[in-house]
C-alpha cells in the first residue's frame, strides 16, 4: 500500500519536477541572452508611454531629474522652474522604486535633443538583488537557482511561477502597456507626499541583504549606460545622494560602512567614475520636521529641498 502510494506520488510529481528542471537549466544556460539589451527593452519600453508629455514640452533647456521615490517626492519642478525664472525646464522622471534599468529604457524612448542636464538621485539599496521584489518580474530571472530558492522562502512563494511566466511572456502580462499620457502633469512629474510611506520601517541595513542576494550587476551596468547615453548626446550628468533624516544618516554611518565601501567598489568595477555629490540638506541637523519618514521629504521638505537643490544646480 505504502509502496503504491509513494510510487504514484513520485510519478505524479515527475512531470512538474522535470518541467522545473528543464526551465531552470534553460534560465541558467541562457542567462546572457536573456539579459541582452534588446530583450530587456521589450520588457521595459512600455513604461515610457507614461512620459509622452515630456516630448510636448518645447523648451531649449530641459533638465531631467532621475531616481526613485526620494526624488519623485523630494523635488518640486514647479518650484525649481520658478526659481530658474523659466530659464530651465525641470522635469521629474523619478518614480517609486525606479531603478537604472527602467530609467535607461524610458530615456531611450524620449526625445533628448533639448535636454541640457540630468540629475540622478542614488539610493544604494536600489542596486541590490534584494530589491528585485519591487521590480519588474523579468529581473527575477537574474537570481541564481539557490538564491531564487531562498528568495521564494523569504518573500514570495510564487517566485518560480513568476520566473517562468517572465521567461515566456513578453511583455509581462501583469504589466500592460502604460496608458499614453500626453497631458503635462501639474508639477511636471513631481508629487508632494501627503501620506506616510508604509514600507520603510526596517532598519536601513536590512534593505541590502548582500550576504543572501548580493548586488545586482545589471543595475550598475545600466547606470553606466545612462552615463554613456548622456555623453553620446552631450548632456551633463550629475549623480547625488538624496536628503536623509539625521537618524538615518547616523544609522547608515555606523551600520553600513562596509556596505557603502562595497557599493563604491561595485560602481568602480562597472566603470562609473563620476563622483556622487552629497546632499546639502542631509548634513544639517534639526531638519526632522521636513521628513515624512527617514527617506522621504514631506510637502514642506520638498519646497525647502527644492531651494537647496536649485543652488546646487547653479553651482554646477
Amino acid at each position: 500500500m505504502m509502496r503504491k502510494f509513494l510510487y504514484r506520488f513520485l510519478l505524479f510529481s515527475l512531470l512538474p519536477l522535470l518541467t522545473f528542471l528543464v526551465l531552470e537549466i534553460r534560465i541558467r544556460t541562457k542567462h546572457t541572452q536573456l539579459f541582452q539589451e534588446e530583450k530587456l527593452e521589450q520588457a521595459f519600453r512600455h513604461k515610457a508611454g507614461a512620459y509622452q508629455w515630456v516630448n510636448t514640452i518645447k523648451h531649449p533647456k530641459k533638465v531631467f531629474l532621475l531616481g526613485s521615490s526620494s526624488i519623485k517626492y523630494g523635488l518640486s519642478c514647479r518650484e525649481l522652474n520658478r526659481l530658474a525664472a523659466d530659464s530651465l525646464a525641470f522635469i521629474n522622471l523619478a518614480a517609486d522604486a525606479r531603478d537604472p534599468i527602467e530609467t535607461y529604457f524610458i530615456l531611450k524612448q524620449l526625445d533628448l535633443s533639448a535636454v541640457s542636464a540630468m540629475y540622478m538621485g542614488i539610493d544604494p539599496w536600489i542596486y541590490t538583488r534584494n530589491y528585485y521584489r519591487n521590480r519588474h518580474q523579468y529581473l527575477l530571472l537574474d537570481l541564481p537557482f539557490t538564491k531564487a530558492l531562498r528568495y521564494s522562502k523569504d518573500y514570495d512563494l510564487r517566485l518560480f511561477a513568476k520566473r517562468y511566466k517572465a521567461l515566456f511572456h513578453f511583455p509581462d502580462p501583469d504589466h500592460p502597456a502604460a496608458i499614453l499620457q500626453t497631458s503635462i502633469p501639474a508639477d511636471f512629474g513631481s508629487v508632494a507626499l501627503t501620506k506616510k510611506p508604509v514600507n520603510f520601517n526596517d532598519p536601513v541595513s536590512k534593505k541590502f541583504r548582500l550576504n543572501e542576494y548580493g548586488w545586482s550587476e545589471l543595475q550598475f551596468t545600466y547606470l553606466q549606460k545612462i552615463v554613456s547615453l548622456c555623453q553620446e548626446k552631450g548632456i551633463a550628468f550629475t549623480a547625488f545622494y538624496p536628503p536623509r533624516r539625521m537618524d538615518f544618516i547616523n544609522d547608515y554611518e555606523s551600520n553600513c560602512r562596509d556596505i557603502q565601501a562595497s557599493f563604491l567598489a561595485q560602481l568602480q568595477k562597472s566603470g562609473f567614475t563620476k563622483q556622487i555629490k552629497s546632499s546639502i540638506l542631509s548634513l544639517q541637523p534639526g531638519n526632522d520636521s521636513l521628513f515624512a519618514d527617514a527617506y522621504h521629504l514631506n510637502k514642506a521638505g520638498q519646497e525647502t529641498y527644492s531651494r537647496y537643490f536649485f543652488s546646487f544646480v547653479q553651482e554646477n
Partner: peptide, 11 residues
C-alpha cells in the same frame, strides 16, 4: 497545481 503556482496571491 498550475493555478496555485501561477495565480496564487501574495502570501
Amino acid at each position: 497545481v498550475l493555478l496555485i503556482f501561477s495565480e496564487g496571491g501574495r502570501t
